[in-house]
Write a protein that binds this DNA or RNA. Structure first.
Lengths: 157, 157
DNA sequence: CTCATTGCAAACAATTTGCATGAAG
DNA sequence: CTTCATGCAAATTGTTTGCAATGAG
């Protein structure tokens, strides 16, 4: 249901990226579009390194440096969002492909669950007014124990 | 007003930490209490490195390693919370000294504003029920432009 | 006395950067 | 042709770890 609205997302994303690059007089290189393509295809959060591995499996050899440099561009043009949960590395995700959502992170098994709930946006509107700042993006991360780990507390001792 | 309830916080915090250490048969070293003392005194978020600098200024020479090791203990016993905004390093803050709150981070000037609003807790309760997970902690971070940077967009070009 | 803790320096992991080569416009 | 992008390897940043010396219980 939610995803049906975004069926043309891969195509639109490429268009958005291409425009963005042209506007800044940056170049439409194959590497950049291979990376974007892989990201929109995944439709979930991922790590920089798993993206690299994923590409290697498909025999697309793109250097780690280019991955990071391209991710920065994609974040800048709003196609990708960067998340830091309380771990060492960062997580990224395709923005419009997923729609507005938040995250629950299980402290026992590490699973990340995407939460779709609109009421947080109301709070945000209220806060914007009362504090006179404008919100461009936000993160709402919940940490705790998921249903499975609550049932069986020892499964990840 | 809010803070008045916590006037004895430094004292209570030391007690909590001391109990925690005893329970685990860890030692009450001067370094650990110097660090805790400095943290509760600050009453706001800080970086591991600024804590070190702060201590050096006061001629308390504690190694970086000990700082990190002690922060971990303080997080474990619930006195300190660790935050990752989307920057390289982590931010820490004394938990009970500040009370439940969230953060607004200005993307232009980097300022961090603490937000006190209880309505987020209602959402959390609702989500816990509907998803059957239990929330132990959470982060709600808003990114955007603060009032000052909205007024004068070029002040940090 | 014994074991945890400290400080130091070296190790790490994720990310960034400098530079020579290569390709887009 | 000019300029930007790439890949590589080295550098950087925040944090962690091994180990010998020290100090708390």
């Amino acid at each position: 249901l939610r995803l049906s609205r975004n069926i043309n997302y891969p195509l639109r994303a490429a268009g958005i990226f291409s425009n963005y690059l042209q506007q800044r007089e940056l170049k439409n290189t194959p590497e950049r579009f291979i990376i974007l393509n892989e990201i929109v295809r995944m439709r979930k959060h991922f790590e920089a390194d798993s993206l690299l591995v994923q590409l290697r499996i498909k025999n697309k050899k793109i250097s780690r440096a280019t991955i990071y440099r391209t991710l920065e561009l994609l974040i800048d043009c709003g196609l990708v969002k960067k998340n830091k949960f309380n771990t060492l590395h960062s997580y990224y995700e395709p923005v419009a492909a997923l729609g507005q959502h938040d995250h629950f992170i299980c402290l026992a098994c590490g699973k990340i669950i995407e939460i779709y709930d609109k009421s947080i946006m109301n709070i945000q509107k209220k806060l914007q007014k009362s504090h006179r700042f404008s919100v461009l993006q936000y993160t709402y991360h919940l940490y705790g124990h998921c249903a499975a780990c609550k049932r069986n507390p020892n499964r990840y001792e």
